[in-house]
Design a binder for these strands. Structure first.
Lengths: 341, 341
DNA sequence: CTGAAAGCGCTAACAA
DNA sequence: TTGTTAGCGCTTTCAG
């Protein structure tokens, strides 16, 4: 067991006080004569000294660490492209700071209050919540305890600032895009109502379906859980219809990819027979054949901005405003004019 | 600014000593009369007390935290499916423990020794390294400082235990699979030699190409950087050949997907004209059309086992042995017998 | 049974 | 200029 050297060891070795060592090492706030400083640095290197972060943190009464709380019920939350983008955005900002990133897992068997305790035991200075309604009570609890947090893609009425993508506008652009091609009979596979994104996009779809005067056949509307197999199932249902849609809009990419797979199996050609539009623009979208037209959601940027805002909050005690980030339509190969015989 | 309560506050309130409070809260190691304990718990709840983790850690001289070090040169290391699987595996184990997960970012501008210092400043008890040759010197340095670590998918000669997938066997199975269909003219898109996986798989391919008596035309072999576009490019090259291969084996899925995309654009049907086999079996593979035949590499399990081993190491001071995890061929839609006119 | 006190490694106020 | 000391919040030994 290797026992790391401490400032005490350095002080002893040089027969000086630990405070002098500390000041020498930190280059302040109190001046230290250059020759002393040099010798301290020398001995420090000799003993392979490096400051104990935990001790520093205890003193600073700060953790210099940002926590990330993934979506809740999800056993494999870490596998979702959303989380991946989120983490990437956070890390890209943190790499230039003295802050560390701490990822939390929802303890399976343990009760919620214990989880909240672990969030607020001082191991992090602030939290980023993945947008998930189930996390709301947790967020409220930590907020009550004075821990800064920002929720990504959450309900705007939430307890604290929220950074959101403009789902409404994204849905509008997608529908606009399809109608410009001449599509009127557009199927929609929505997201779960327990999800903020699901709820918002579903609502937006119904709004704009009116506005654009689309076919309102209830058989064209379904709800999925944001997973591929639900897209496959939905497509299979649509295939049963005698009056099939000419386009399918899905509330996320995974489901859109599922639709594409079912279509491929059924010999439906995309975009000739069906135009397919997704939502999120995760890296998956590249892998699909044909590549997916989708609404881009800047998750990484949102996460990056949230991280910056949190650090600013922690350091200057200014609570950021909620923000809405623009979405944009990325037109690829899976959408086109309806095929007319 | 909310100032959290401490055991001192509780002690003062009850006019007892902090040690009694501590023992009451922790239920030991020293006995505390039930009625005292009850009152302590009561006041603790009243003051919304929760123990300060940092203080505890300082005392324990442990961080109760496992660090994750992603592959190095990669700006977006966190977006790779490999890292995703790795993190998932780690988190699934940690959720049932008192350990936290800390993700490290390679500070862009900062020099390497500073990074090493941050790894060894006591914030983590052990490290999991993503398999990347560029991390070797870093790993050596932290090992020298006595920090336990396991490398995932690294060179077996590395400084410390390594958990590896059986690349050799995986390559063998893939080739076997293709030859069983009757393929002889098999193209291979290898991985970068700077990667352990790339190197191992490339070497294995050449070995088994001999063993199975495959066509050794050098035009059939390329090297990619494990990214999709390199797969696309490789496929385009193959399309130029007058004597095209009947199957293509790629050292990872991303590149295999790239090959599929190029093939699709060129009107090449998979698996009729080309059989395509990948390596890794990441979730992407599901999204592709047709779905990809690939060699499964149990990254999440490897990461989970590594995490368990590290905790065991930290707590009982037993260094684990290096391990090799079996790979397996997952046959999907992208492979089949060669088309003969 | 329980309070006082030492100490984890560090920072910084206080003395000298 | 520099040493002594008091914490940070906790655990645990040492006295009583």
């Amino acid at each position: 067991m290797i026992v790391p050297a401490t400032i005490k060891d350095i002080a002893k070795r040089l027969n000086i006080s630990i405070s002098t060592v500390s000041y020498a090492l930190n280059n302040g706030p109190r001046p230290v004569p250059e020759h002393v400083r040099e010798r301290v640095l020398e001995v420090a290197k000799e003993l392979d000294y490096r400051p104990n972060r935990i001790a520093r943190l205890l003193n600073a009464r700060r953790a210099f660490s940002i926590g990330i709380v993934p979506a809740k019920p999800d056993k494999d939350a870490f596998l979702s492209p959303h989380f991946q983008q989120l983490l990437n955005g956070v890390m890209n900002v943190l790499e230039d700071t003295k802050y560390a990133a701490s990822v939390f897992a929802h303890h399976s068997a343990v009760n919620e209050s214990e989880f909240i305790d672990s969030l607020t035991d001082g191991r992090v200075d602030a939290l980023i919540f993945s947008g998930d309604i189930a996390l709301e009570p947790i967020r409220e609890a930590v907020t009550r305890r004075g821990l800064p947090s920002i929720a990504l893609g959450a309900d705007l009425s939430a307890a604290g600032p929220v950074f959101n993508a403009d789902n409404n506008c994204g849905v509008r652009r997608a529908i606009e895009h399809l109608t410009e091609f001449g599509h009127r009979r557009i199927a929609y596979l929505g997201g779960p109502e327990e999800t903020v994104d699901g709820r918002d996009r579903n609502k937006a779809f119904h709004t704009f379906r009116e506005e654009f005067g689309l076919d309102t056949d209830p058989a064209l509307v379904g709800i999925g859980r944001f997973i591929g197999p639900d897209g496959e199932r939905f497509a299979e249902q649509l295939l049963q219809l005698k009056d099939r849609p000419t386009a399918i809009f899905c509330a996320n990419d995974e489901m859109a990819i599922g639709v594409c797979k079912s279509a491929y199996r059924a010999g439906i050609s995309i975009p000739r027979d069906w135009s397919v539009v997704g939502f999120d623009d995760y890296s998956h979208s590249w892998a699909v054949t044909p590549s997916l037209t989708t609404v881009h959601q800047p998750v990484a940027e949102m996460a990056a901005e949230a991280t910056r805002a949190l650090i600013h909050w922690v350091e200057n005690d200014v609570t950021p405003e909620s923000r809405i980030f623009p979405t944009s339509l990325v037109v690829r190969e899976s959408s086109g004019p309806p095929f007319t015989t």
